[in-house]
Nucleic acid binder design. Structure first.
Lengths: 111, 111
DNA sequence: TGAGGTACACACAAATTTGTAAGTAATGGG
DNA sequence: CCCATTACTTACAAATTTGTGTGTACCTCA
């Protein structure tokens, strides 16, 4: 079956999932901290995506019995295996952007 | 700006995009050939995703003046830069699957 | 007494993505 | 004359994803 790729895409294909995971790369973060790292995401989306990531074994959730509540999230071992993926994607994005830049300057020259 | 990752996700985050790209890794394919490689995709979706990939410079479309029409698609240089990404995702998927397998067998033992 | 902080859940609405079915253009073959 | 082939397009419907706004529990500190 060639579907390994599809399988992976299902796990991390959510709009925010890789983003969330990569914010956790440097260590545990609480809900509100992740939120602050990714201002465009709504609380609802963050909660939903975190729940899926947890279900799929990509993040570990820890609840502390405190008031006000405290919860933190961290990468699991298998999620750490994805670090090279977002690294490469970031590098690739930079390349792609600079390519567009060049195309634009060319157009500019000609026009 | 940390948004390189988001940028990349926008380009390849479509449900079928990476899948389509990876089918093109071995060389040009025509529309119907891609379709045959990915039976779950509808023609409409394939057409839409291909158009976006083309717009973003990830595939090159070539139309031949024949009847019935012939069109083929191939990876651009920048898209080739994504090869390691799907390679890693495939490997990762295999790991993730076998992890689930282990968890299941454990549950089975205990239960 | 009452406001404040945290990590959500919930109902509802809006937006985006996807599927379905049918149609098109052009030409070669029966 | 009609059908088959290919790579789509278009209109419409259904499904999925997201956003918005409000609510909640619980304790602490002023």
């Amino acid at each position: 079956m060639e579907c390994d790729l599809m399988y992976a895409i299902c796990k991390i294909g959510g709009r925010w999932k890789l983003m969330i995971l990569c914010k956790l790369e440097k260590g545990k973060l609480r809900f509100s901290e992740i939120k602050r790292c990714i201002p465009e995401i709504t609380e609802r989306m963050l909660a939903l995506q975190l729940r899926e990531l947890e279900k799929d074994g990509l993040v570990k959730r820890t609840v502390y019995a405190e008031v006000p509540p405290r919860v933190d999230y961290e990468l699991t071992d298998i999620a750490i295996g994805l670090v090279p993926v977002w690294r490469q994607l970031e590098d690739w994005a930079v390349q792609h952007k600079s390519l567009l830049q060049n195309d634009k300057s060319k157009v500019h020259e000609i026009a």
